[in-house]
């Protein structure tokens, strides 16, 4: 009986020893954890205050307010140096937490904090994108509104342009931080495709008729020019034919009253060997045919048949 009591006592003692050991093993870690947290928190607060003071001393607020940030911060409780100090504070706090939880070895909280820390630069870039986009948008709105101030739709146009730029910036920022990429990208593409379609139909549709008129002019021009070329060629060959007839060495007295053979071939080039087309037989080699010194005499017109009437 006493044996069993002794054994039980021994077991109890071992358990208590285990308990103490694990507590003693745990205590330094917990102490270190708390110390790190406290020190980090203190450092963070000191840094926040220091950054705030230094920035205010340097004149950061005034420099920032000269930009467009003042309007953005107008409704918040902080001024710019406050904001920067607070950012520093939370950053230091985050690193402190990471360090403190690192004591416990791999654990889910550390993973979470690491993920947040890794994500922070992208969030920063996204914020910068939004701020820059807002600044550009306000500048564009100012420029457009001033340039088109005389137009009734100038203000509307300026607002539309500004919101378009802000929308682009927002979508870019959301893409940057990886939020709703599957939603924003199709929306962006749809909006851009809509604008492109409006441009194509509106601008391109307006260009259909001028282009048509231009084509008409070109074809008309080509037609007129080819007509002129054909006319010139026809007249040229007619002239050649007449000259050949006139220069023929021996003017055989062709029947002067012979009518023209057929209708005058207007469209076809005159063959070289036929007589001039319109009722005009071989001309004499000279004019007038018999020498006559009398200037007022009615010169004979042999060889000149009267022109065919009724053309």
């Amino acid at each position: 009986m006493s044996d069993t009591v002794a054994v039980a006592q021994l077991n109890l003692g071992g358990a208590v020893t285990d308990l103490f050991r694990s507590v003693l093993l745990f205590l330094p870690k917990a102490l270190g954890f708390v110390v790190i947290l406290v020190v980090g928190w203190l450092v963070a607060r000191v840094l926040r205050t220091a950054v705030d003071k230094v920035l205010e001393r340097v004149g950061f607020d005034r420099a920032v307010e000269r930009g467009g940030i003042r309007a953005a911060l107008g409704r918040s409780r902080y001024d710019a140096s406050d904001l920067v100090g607070r950012l520093v504070y939370y950053a230091v706090l985050l690193f402190t937490l990471q360090l403190a939880f690192g004591i416990w070895g791999p654990n889910p909280v550390s993973d979470l904090i690491r993920g947040v820390v890794a994500w922070l630069p992208r969030a920063f870039v996204a914020i910068v994108i939004v701020v820059v986009a807002a600044a550009i948008a306000s500048a564009v709105r100012d420029v457009v509104a001033n340039a088109l101030g005389g137009l009734s739709y100038g203000r509307v146009l300026a607002t539309v342009a500004a919101w378009f730029i802000i929308g682009l910036g927002l979508i870019a920022a959301l893409n940057q931080i990886g939020v709703a990429t599957t939603v924003t990208t199709p929306i962006l593409i749809a909006v851009l495709a809509t604008i492109a379609g409006i441009l194509i139909v509106g601008v391109g549709g307006g260009l259909v008729r001028p282009m048509q008129a231009r084509w008409d002019r070109w074809l008309d021009r080509a037609g007129t020019e080819s007509q002129a070329i054909a006319e010139h060629a026809r007249a040229y060959s007619a002239g050649q034919s007449d000259a050949r007839q006139a220069m023929a060495p021996e003017p055989t007295p062709a029947a002067p009253d012979a009518p023209a053979q057929g209708a005058p071939a207007q469209g076809a080039p005159v063959p070289a060997t036929t007589a001039p087309t319109v009722g005009f037989d071989r001309p004499p080699a000279g004019y007038p045919s018999e020498p006559s010194a009398e200037p007022t005499q009615v010169l004979p017109t042999t060889g000149h048949q009267p022109p065919t009437p009724g053309r």
């Binding site: 010139h232 007249a235 040229y236 002239g239 050649q240 000259a243």
Partner: peptide, 14 residues
């Protein structure tokens, strides 16, 4: 154009 072409043809051939 026709007149000038005719005169050209006439003078060239002659």
């Amino acid at each position: 154009i026709g007149l000038a072409g005719y005169a050209d043809g006439l003078r060239d051939m002659a």
